[in-house]
């Protein structure tokens, strides 16, 4: 993504959600200005809960911030929030395997979080940086999912490996790996069907897809990207945990952040599972996928 694009997209979120954000931020700053009393602290707690942070986490953050004497209250809350984020390695994403071996990104999540759209945006991001990208249509279940990915592949101008509807997703993945090796692809992005994390047979299917990748390209260290809708509440943590167990997550994309939602459940996930949020989706255009930075995310809560 070019710098102008990044600025444009940033401007579009700022314009789109400014009003709802402003109310939230004003409230937080108002409560934390000067020396907040017990009621004000309780309201801070509620405000954090209203951002989907989860009651227990919010209670903890407020208690620790209140106890701090080294900084003013607003900074105390900011610091405590930043503490919740997982450690971030300073390595490129996706990890670059051995020379000549394609990097593989497996994209997973529950239904309707925006997996296919995120894949389109990722493809654009990698391709515009000169990488040879290949898409694999592993969602063979949802009606028209393959068509949707094909439209994205055409839009971004990258090749697509697809089978017919209802085909075995592992077979699609196997062929995609073959094609990637044959074409000298840099990054393969694999779409998967949305699945509720409570369906054990579908979760097992994800493990199988991982095994298929390992079988065809043993040197590949697949990145597994969990796509999370920012409007999701506390169930997001349960989802992440289940997907982590069956697929081994290495990153999170937080989508639909151009809504009024604040995606606070990301704090819970980072804190509990140590999986970093890497990208945020902020719109419908292919440029609308930004790098996630904890400082910016926390700063945005305060306006």
């Amino acid at each position: 993504m070019t710098q102008t694009d990044q600025r444009d997209a940033q401007a579009s979120i700022e314009a789109g959600v400014a009003r709802s954000r402003a109310g939230f931020a004003t409230r937080l700053r108002g409560l934390l200005g000067g020396s907040p009393d017990a009621d004000a602290w309780e309201e801070v707690e509620e405000t954090l809960i209203s951002a989907d942070m989860g009651a227990e986490l919010a209670v903890g953050v407020v208690a620790r911030a209140r106890a701090r004497r080294d900084v003013i209250p607003e900074m105390a809350v900011r610091y405590e929030l930043l503490e919740l984020f997982a450690h971030r390695d300073a390595v490129p994403w996706p990890r670059k395997p051995a020379p000549g071996v394609p990097a593989v990104v497996l994209v997973v999540g529950v239904n309707g979080t925006g997996k296919t759209t995120t894949i389109g945006k990722l493809a654009h991001r990698f391709a515009s940086r000169g990488a040879r990208v290949l898409l694999a249509a592993g969602d063979t279940f949802r009606a028209a999912a393959i068509d949707q990915l094909r439209i994205w592949a055409q839009r971004v101008d990258v090749p697509l490996v697809a089978h017919a509807a209802n085909a075995d997703p592992s077979a699609v993945v196997y062929d995609a790996m073959d094609a990637a090796v044959a074409r000298g692809t840099d990054v393969v992005i694999v779409d998967t069907a949305g699945r509720l994390h409570t369906k054990s047979n579908l979760m097992e299917e994800l493990s199988k897809i991982r095994r298929t990748i390992a079988k065809r390209i043993p040197e590949a260290q697949p990145e597994v990207l969990f796509v999370l809708d920012a409007t999701t509440g506390q169930n997001g943590l349960t989802q992440a945990r289940a997907f982590h167990e069956s697929a081994g997550l290495t990153g999170i994309a937080l989508t639909k952040l151009d809504s009024t939602a604040r995606g606070g459940v990301a704090f819970s996930i980072e804190q509990a599972l140590g999986i970093p949020v890497l990208f945020v989706g902020v719109g419908e255009r292919m440029e609308d996928l930004l790098d996630f930075r904890p400082d910016d995310f926390v700063a945005a809560l305060f306006g």
Partner: peptide
């Protein structure tokens, strides 16, 4: 699975159209 925003979302839709009911989806999760 929607979180705290449910109310804001519903109110915004109600402002535009007269909502007569909800369909709550993905209840099998």
């Amino acid at each position: 699975m929607v979180g705290q925003e449910s109310v804001t979302v519903a109110e915004a839709f109600r402002e535009a159209v007269s909502i007569t009911g909800l369909i709550l989806t993905k209840v099998d999760g």
